[in-house]
Computed example of a mutant assay.
Amino acid sequence: MSTPLIIGLAATLLAPSDLPAKLVQNPLYKAGALPATACKEPALKKNDAASAKRYLTTVFSCLDRTWGTYAKKKGLPYKRPTVHIMTVPGKKDVCGTEWQHDYVANLCGTTIGIMLKDHMLKKPDPLALMDMAAGMAGHVFLDRVGISDATIGQIPTITDAEQEEINRRELLQRDCMSGVFVGSVWKSLKRPAKDWSALLKYRERTGDDFVGGPRLRGDSESIVYWMKRGYAKRDPGACNTWTASARQVR
Results as ranks from 00 to 15, higher is better:
137 A>T: 05
147 I>S: 05
238 A>H: 04
24 V>C: 08
44 L>H: 05
9 L>C: 02
63 L>N: 04
75 G>D: 01
170 E>L: 12
244 A>D: 01
218 G>C: 05
247 R>K: 15
188 S>M: 09
34 L>E: 00
34 L>I: 15
143 D>N: 13
217 R>E: 02
118 D>T: 15
48 D>R: 08
124 P>I: 03
72 K>G: 13
31 A>S: 14
250 R>C: 09
217 R>F: 08
153 G>P: 02
120 M>S: 04
17 S>L: 08
232 A>N: 08
155 I>S: 02
52 A>L: 10
96 G>M: 07
204 E>C: 03
87 T>I: 13
13 L>K: 12
249 V>G: 01
146 G>V: 10
177 M>N: 06
54 R>V: 10
144 R>V: 00
80 R>H: 00
223 I>C: 02
153 G>E: 03
249 V>K: 01
70 Y>K: 05
161 A>P: 00
145 V>L: 06
28 L>P: 03
30 K>E: 14
219 D>M: 02
187 K>F: 03
109 G>S: 04
63 L>K: 06
196 W>G: 01
134 A>R: 00
4 P>D: 03
118 D>V: 10
104 V>E: 10
236 P>F: 07
34 L>M: 15
240 N>G: 09
132 M>N: 04
241 T>L: 11
52 A>P: 04
37 T>M: 13
20 P>R: 05
6 I>R: 14
199 L>I: 02
248 Q>N: 11
1 M>V: 12
27 P>G: 09
236 P>S: 08
232 A>V: 03
223 I>R: 13
45 K>H: 10
105 A>N: 13
128 A>K: 14
32 G>N: 10
177 M>I: 07
155 I>H: 03
162 E>R: 08
39 C>M: 06
215 R>T: 08
143 D>R: 10
236 P>M: 08
205 R>D: 08
